[in-house]
Design a binder for these strands. Structure first.
Length: 633
DNA sequence: TTAGGGTTAG
């Protein structure tokens, strides 16, 4: 009796008034409904849809919770057709579903990326509550329709519907202007929703995306109830803005207060290790990564860490055993090989990718052009550049032109460079002129260098790089009066050259060596060892290459100046600190100079060491007296 | 019935 009254209650008014249409008994329909509810509850989609057909024949309707279960089932099975069928069923015969059931359909269309259907349904809703509005706002945020998301927030408030924590955390993701974020932040505090962990992580995320790390940190510091996603958000914020130290400190604190790290946390921690070249710490993180063996993003981060820390064997091992590889995995490996001096391997891998990998994207092509550029493969570079549109469907962008200019510049084809600059549809930017200037330094074209430097100064009078490069070029040509003039111009504008600095990790501690700085506690011993090594190298034929000395110095003074280069100190410190079988890994802020490059090759041979130096552009693996860059950098 | 953090280059 109870089932019958329930059924009558659920029948749409229109069908109740014409009950003669039913040919089955109430008992039959009751059992039909029970079966249907059961199938929906157990997410048995085929049987539920079958039961739905039977119900349609009998004009029977279930309760909203049962339909909602079936919608979830359609979502889980990605069953779009069945979802639409259900929608038609529920709205048939004048049945008026409750708002919360319509919201479920709205959510279903959004999850199926059928935004037009969702919009149509939303427009037809007799009444819309906070969930209806938030579902649409979230859909627009995800679809990057940011203006629409913001406009819907305004509209809902105008209609008297108050946003909740779901709404704020969704709409924040659509915010691109600091002003809007501040306004929303203000509203959030006013209605007392700032302690919601979803809202907090969204705030940290949007502040971070705009580079407002102080604001992000303030939001994080106000957290009373801990939450691992909020922790991960702030760690990611610093990792993404190259503040690896702060990211790692936060990670240590997170663990100290008892929050476990998951895939997302570890991905950001690896990124921090990568930015600091902390291979040993990266290896320790790798142990934790094992728990999340199948996570593609995490594996990609691990792969990148090994590439950027110059450990190609580990990188290849990870790449080969990854069960799933996407375009990022392939691009990372190709660029990693290229940056570490294995250009041919990089190009071979690109060929394999075309056969059995995902479709290359514009970043993959950058790695390929980088490989050509750093191996002097001019013809191959032109081939990939000219055919990228037909091979991969990608139009060359500014960065691709930049790579080609770099390739021509390294190969000494300065005329072709100038020709290409005229061909590019974009206005030449600072990077373009700096590439030309750099090529002029390598290939000693003083006049063209002066022209490029002036172009840079026109675009940015405070660009210190142009002054330094021009000064280097004049110094290489022994035009000391021109050097003095450039230096004077730098002084007038208050510009100072960034001092060369090299870092090395020994016993989990980072040691920094700055040119001319004597503050390292073992500096006397290092200098003494360095002098002994230089004497041994000179007797073996080493001639210091004083072309890299910038000051107007003579004879021995010029050689002394070279001795102070930070990477030489770091190499000697590495030799003093590590056993022979341990790779010496150094990273530095400026490009390695020619003399230090020769010194590193000879030291690798003399001491039978493997030395890896990472500069801002690429890596040099020194072994047996040769470098992986083939002296071409 | 509505919301969260992570990967390649530059």
């Amino acid at each position: 009796m109870k089932a019958v009254s329930k059924l009558l209650h659920l029948m749409p008014p229109s069908t109740l008034s014409c009950s003669h249409r039913y040919s089955s008994s109430l008992q039959e329909t009751s059992s039909l409904l029970n079966d249907f509810a059961n199938f929906c509850y157990h997410r048995d989609l085929p049987r539920a849809m079958h039961a739905l057909d039977a119900m349609e024949k009998h004009g029977v309707y279930a309760d909203a919770t049962t339909y909602s279960n079936l919608i979830k089932c359609c979502l889980a099975h990605k069953a779009v057709r069945e979802g639409k069928h259900l929608h038609r069923h529920v709205f048939s015969n004048g049945y008026a579903p409750k708002t919360f059931l319509i919201n479920s359909f709205l959510n279903m269309y959004v999850k199926f990326s059928l935004l037009e259907e969702a919009e149509k349904l939303f427009d037809e809703m007799p009444e819309r509550n906070v969930v209806s509005w938030t579902t649409m706002i979230s859909a627009y945020s995800n679809a990057k329709l940011k203006d629409r998301a913001m406009r819907f927030l305004v509209l809902m408030v105008r209609e008297g519907v108050m946003p909740n924590m779901y709404t704020f955390s969704s709409v924040l993701r659509a915010c691109e202007r600091l002003y809007d974020i501040k306004q929303l932040h203000c509203s959030i505090v006013k209605v007392g929703l700032e302690s919601d962990v979803f809202v907090r992580s969204a705030l940290i995320d949007v502040y971070s995306k705009l580079g407002e790390l102080l604001e992000a940190m303030n939001v994080f510091r106000e957290m009373v109830t801990g939450d691992s996603v909020v922790w991960t958000s702030i760690i990611a914020a610093f990792a993404q803005h190259s503040d690896g130290d702060e990211a790692l400190d936060l990670y240590k604190n997170m663990r100290r207060v008892g929050f476990p790290a998951d895939q997302s946390t570890l991905t950001s921690v690896l990124r921090a290790c990568t930015s600091l070249s902390l291979l040993e710490l990266g290896r320790q993180v790798h142990v934790h990564v094992m728990k999340f063996d199948q996570d593609l993003i995490l594996n990609n981060a691990l792969l990148d860490m090994y590439c950027k820390c110059g450990s190609l064997e580990d990188a290849k091992f990870i790449f080969n055993r990854m069960a799933e590889k996407d375009v990022i995995s392939w691009s990372t490996m190709i660029a990693g090989l290229a940056q570490n001096g294995f250009s041919m391997e990089a190009l071979n891998l690109f060929d394999s990718m075309k056969v059995r990998g995902p479709k290359p994207n514009h970043i993959t092509i950058l790695g390929v052009l980088f490989a050509c550029s750093h191996a002097g493969l001019v013809d191959e570079g032109w081939y990939y550049f000219r055919s990228m549109k037909t091979l991969c469907g990608i139009d060359p962008g500014r960065e691709h032109y930049g790579c080609m200019l770099d390739l021509l510049g390294r190969a000494g084809k300065l005329d072709d460079m100038v020709k290409l600059i005229h061909e590019i549809e974009y206005e030449p930017d600072i990077v373009t002129w700096r590439t030309l200037l750099d090529a002029c330094r390598t290939h000693r074209n003083v006049d063209l260098a002066a022209f490029a430097a002036k172009e840079i100064q026109k675009l940015d009078p405070h660009d210190i790089g142009a002054y330094v490069l021009l000064s280097n070029i004049y110094a290489n040509s022994k035009r000391w009066s021109d050097v003095a003039e450039v230096r004077r111009a730098m002084r007038t504008r208050g510009l100072r050259k960034e001092p060369g600095c090299s870092w090395i990790e020994v016993n989990k501690k980072i040691h920094a060596f700055i040119m001319g700085d004597k503050s390292h506690p073992q500096i006397d011993e290092i200098n003494s060892q360095l002098n002994q090594f230089i004497c041994r190298l000179i007797s073996a034929g080493y001639v210091p290459d004083t072309n890299f000395v910038l000051q107007d110095l003579e004879g021995e003074q010029r050689e002394d100046s070279l001795r102070n280069h930070s990477e030489k100190l770091a190499i000697v410190f590495g030799i003093m600190s590590f056993p022979r079988d341990k790779t010496i890994r150094i990273w530095k802020n400026l490009r390695i100079c020619g003399d230090c490059h020769i010194f590193a090759k000879l030291m690798a041979k003399l001491e039978q060491r493997h030395i890896v130096i990472r500069d801002p552009i690429r890596y040099h693996h020194f072994k047996d007296g040769v470098c992986s860059c083939g002296d071409y950098w």
